[in-house]
Write a protein that binds this DNA or RNA. Sequence first.
DNA 1: AAACTTGGTTCAATGACCGAACCCATGCCT
DNA 2: AGGCATGGGTTCGGTCATTGAACCAAGTTT
Lengths: 180, 180
Amino acid sequence: MECMALGKDYATQECSIARALEVVGERWTLLVVRDAFYGVRRYNDFLVHLGIPRAVLAARLQTLTAEGILDKRRYQESPPRDEYVLTARGLALWPTLRALGLWGRDFLNKPDLRTFRHAVCGTEQELGPYGECPACGTVVPVSDVELMPGPGLDRDPADPVSRALLKPKRLLQPLETEPV
Amino acid sequence: MECMALGKDYATQECSIARALEVVGERWTLLVVRDAFYGVRRYNDFLVHLGIPRAVLAARLQTLTAEGILDKRRYQESPPRDEYVLTARGLALWPTLRALGLWGRDFLNKPDLRTFRHAVCGTEQELGPYGECPACGTVVPVSDVELMPGPGLDRDPADPVSRALLKPKRLLQPLETEPV
DNA sequence: AAACTTGGTTCAATGACCGAACCCATGCCT
DNA sequence: AGGCATGGGTTCGGTCATTGAACCAAGTTT
């Protein structure tokens, strides 16, 4: 009885888009993945940054881990603490998130909230739609993308994660939340 | 009271990805849009192809129309019949769907279910990850993309829409369902 | 020992989704 | 004219997911 019809799958669909959506199409899931790209790694940071119910976050982290998109790993022993980091499969979701973000920016809201650029070549130009650097022409690997806060962003957000994201930083680089 | 907190929005998120997901992130929505790219235009065709509950389909078509992603238009007067076609805003979702589909193919299932290629230049090579044609090098506009059935596809599906999609066809070109 | 932090689980209430049944305007067959 | 079929929905009760708040537990600081 484990294999059938949870009602959450798109049963009749023979399509890799449908398969993908069964895994990352649930509410909150892609936002968790986005935060992982932004350097969020800890349960509590996801929690305050997303404003997600605790139970839902726990469920999502578990399925993302089970699907091999996040890797849960111990980063200190005492007290035992785990962090969630993107696997190769998770990193491969970057083009999807990029495409979604561009669509949202171009068709839904005016002000630029965040922009991305190539960290290593020193350009100030934004990455192109496929993640290519307009200055040096290459498709920039995710770890070399610099995340810049845009003009539309709230300058004084309530949670420490948003505050940490006001400074430019590389994707995937772990977040440095200020000690309170 | 109409404007606040339906519980379905990602309230705290200042992010174009979150904005986008509020619009296209609900269950079924992106599959409806995908079908629109495949040439599905009529309520009934969406219904049988997706296996979606009627009420949900009606709701999704309504919000997609309200958000300016689909355009509902009368295509015959008697009996009055409407069809749903992608607007510019809807067409701009193609890179997102493409990225999702590639991810699903590469990381979730083995067999190629559908492939895309450039219709006008006669190549047999598949489009690249950004929708560029490997033969002629250009980024192919959606209406020039040819949708090819892949080897992993069921050869004798139950519904007429899936059957119509077994033949190669251009994206956006209206579906020709066989008269029964 | 008391209080705090991190990372959860449990619970009742609400909302979304589900399938099945019903509705209605028109067209087609006889 | 009567009957059935088709396209495009709406309504309805039951189930499943999501929500916010409360609770729990291990370890650590004071």
